[in-house]
Computed example of a mutant assay.
Amino acid sequence: MRSRAYALFAALMLAPVVVSAPALAADKISLRLPWLLNVQSAGYVMAREKGFYADAGLDVDIMPGGPNLNSTALVASGANTFGTNDVGQILLGDANGMDLVMVAACFQRHPAGVVSLEKSDIKKPADLVGKTLAYNEGGPWALTKAMLAKAGVPLEKIKLVVSPSDQLLVNGSVDAKTGFVINEAVALDLQGHKTSTLLPSDFGVSTYAEVIFAARRTVDGNPDLVKRFVAATQKGYDYAYAHKDEAVKIIVGLNNQLDPVQQAKQMELQESFVYTDFSRARGACAFDGAVIGETEKTLREFGDLKSAVDVSKTYSTEFIPPK
């Protein structure tokens, strides 16, 4: 008995000791949206909900934007790690010394354009001649002016009214208005007002929306973090649009102010903005730097960009996963 006990003791002493390494804590970061949470942000929400961010070692807080929450300023200040917005807003931020870098562009076509009621029979830019167009300053108006210029339609031949109101369109006070076709047109359609839309992207004005950006200090100082975030976000976009019903249900659950029917229709419409021949070939959220350069020229001519920006310093395509 004593010899067997000694042998067992010796065996235990000689056995390798296995020590479990403590799990590495996920990098806690934040993403600031350009507006209130809705299906426009489905890609990020599903990346979090389906564990793609967690698998990449990221703990992501998705935070809404709003009228007094500017994603460019919040990222530049360090309050948020990443932000989303359109190219124009990021270029304007860089022109004002924010030093932001675009690393992905998830809406290949910009949803800003002109909304009209179908009965107005406005199907091309020239159809706005002699009509009344409501607008308010901002991205949709700059892109609309660029579209009209490319189509050879002088602004002097259109009656202009400054207003963001959809009601003016409904009551016939105006024939058309600038806005975002993925939500405003859908809302009007659901109210029984059949709409038509003009998209600058269909008439030679190219730019991106839902662009992911970070401060240069993040891009240069922690490129691995940026790479992991972009790759996981790409998975989130692909999952969201392959499971649209699930994505809508989850997002409506996160924001009970949303109309699930409208959100489902918006999600369906958005797919053609996210997936084009380019992004299907290169992967969701891939982008071309030439489009950034084109946007810079558009904003200098028709928008609020008062001086040239060195576009080459405003973006990096190196974080998009190879396909």
Rank of each mutant, 00 (worst) to 15 (best):
M1N: 12
R4N: 12
A7M: 13
A21G: 06
L24A: 15
L24W: 13
S30M: 06
L31N: 01
L37M: 14
Q40L: 14
A42P: 05
G43N: 01
A54Y: 02
D55P: 01
A56Y: 07
D59C: 07
V60Y: 05
N68G: 05
N68V: 11
A73Q: 13
A76K: 08
A76V: 02
A79C: 09
A79I: 10
N85V: 07
G88S: 07
A104D: 09
P111F: 04
S116V: 07
K124L: 04
A126E: 09
D127V: 00
G139M: 06
P140N: 05
M147T: 03
L148N: 00
A149C: 05
E156S: 11
K157G: 01
K159N: 06
L160V: 05
P164N: 12
S165G: 08
S165W: 09
D166T: 10
K177F: 06
K177S: 07
T178A: 06
G179R: 04
V181Y: 04
I182H: 14
E184H: 11
V186W: 02
D189N: 15
T197N: 11
D202V: 03
F203H: 15
T207D: 12
E210Y: 12
V211K: 07
K227G: 09
F229T: 09
A231C: 03
Q234A: 10
G236P: 04
Y237F: 15
Y241I: 05
A242S: 15
H243F: 12
G253Q: 08
L254E: 00
N255W: 10
N255F: 09
N256P: 12
Q266R: 15
E271N: 13
S272F: 09
F273D: 02
D277R: 09
G283F: 10
C285D: 02
A290R: 08
I292F: 00
G293A: 10
L299I: 07
E301N: 12
F302R: 02
L305I: 01
S307R: 13
T314F: 01
